[in-house]
């Protein structure tokens, strides 16, 4: 019986999502980007780090579809391999943020009272910091590397999830089924993990999808500033640094990696909004 209602829910969710053309476009693009990242070694026409000093700063041509950079490396291959970095950073950072957010939100929403007040003040406090300034300060201490920025983006981005989970928990814990489970003598931990959290997962899913977009934007900005992924590892942000240094002579170095970021971020945003509307159609104004 329970399984059946769950299947029915999933079916209505899918049919609603499918009717939203923007969301479908987002989903297709997200899946496509995953494929590009996974198949990068087979899709890229050249080794992304192959230096060819006879082919420096060549504009787009049949041999190099997106041109070459200042070391003669193929920009298309670097953009394709850059997709791996973006997705890796996006998912790990959001994973960290979601984990912290769920934990803080669950504790605050479940126990309420002083615990809630304390944790929510912490959330307010973190929201007060211009995130980029905080991230840069931490990077200054830890040094720039792909692992550090994943951790730092995650640790500075959990506040939204915490608020969402807390709000869900506050309303859920008053419901009859929670009282029933509690009357049966379930422990707090079991109640939180087995009964409350599964019911609060949809807003978390939406916020995580949108969070991937945000994390990819932050990573590219940090790499662009020279404080994120370090060359020669190709990332969309650090290709754009080269674009900025050669802005008057090589437009292709600035245009294509930026386009890749724009399309990626937009497809996650579209998918996230689509899931949100499919879960709660009232949100469609």
């Amino acid at each position: 019986m329970e399984l059946e209602t769950r299947n029915l829910k999933l079916e209505t969710f899918w049919s609603r999502l499918r009717r939203n053309r923007m969301a479908v476009a987002g989903l297709v693009l997200v899946v496509g980007l995953f494929a590009v990242a996974l198949l990068a070694p087979w899709l890229a026409p050249y080794d992304p780090n192959f230096i060819d000093l006879k082919q420096v700063l060549m504009p787009p041509s049949p041999a190099h579809l997106l041109g070459t950079d200042t070391l003669g490396r193929d920009v298309l291959s670097r953009v394709i391999f850059g997709a791996r970095i973006s997705l890796l950073v996006g998912f790990v950072a959001v994973g960290i943020a979601t984990l912290i957010g769920v934990l803080v939100g669950a504790l605050a929403g479940y126990y309420g009272g002083a615990m809630d007040a304390l944790l929510m003040r912490l959330v307010d406090l973190m929201l007060c910091f211009p995130t980029l300034f905080l991230i840069l300060a931490v990077i200054a201490v830890l040094g720039p590397s792909i692992w550090n920025i994943m951790v730092v983006i995650g640790v500075t981005g959990w506040m939204g999830v915490a608020r969402l989970v807390r709000a869900e928990f506050l309303s859920l814990r008053e419901r009859e089924f929670v009282m029933a489970v509690r009357a049966l003598g379930a422990s707090d931990a079991r109640l939180i993990w087995r009964h409350l959290l599964p019911n609060a997962l949809t807003p978390v899913m939406v916020s995580a999808t949108l969070g991937v977009a945000g994390a990819i934007l932050t990573e590219s900005a940090l790499s662009f500033l020279g404080l994120g992924v370090q060359p020669p590892t190709p990332s969309w942000g650090n290709i754009l640094t080269m674009g900025k240094d050669n802005i008057e002579i090589a437009w292709w170095l600035s245009v294509f990696p930026g386009l890749a970021i724009l399309v990626t971020v937009m497809s996650y945003n579209l998918l996230g909004e689509g899931i949100r509307e499919a879960v709660d159609p009232r949100l469609r104004d």
């Binding site: 977009a213 934007l217 590219s220 900005a221 662009f224 500033l225 754009l240 674009g243 900025k244 802005i247 600035s254 245009v255 930026g258 970021i261 724009l262 399309v263 971020v265 937009m266 945003n269 579209l270």
Partner: peptide, 14 residues
């Protein structure tokens, strides 16, 4: 949607 997805530094470069 464009505004949300646009990387600020890319906009500056353009």
């Amino acid at each position: 949607f464009f505004g949300f997805a646009m990387p600020s530094f890319w906009l500056a470069l353009l």
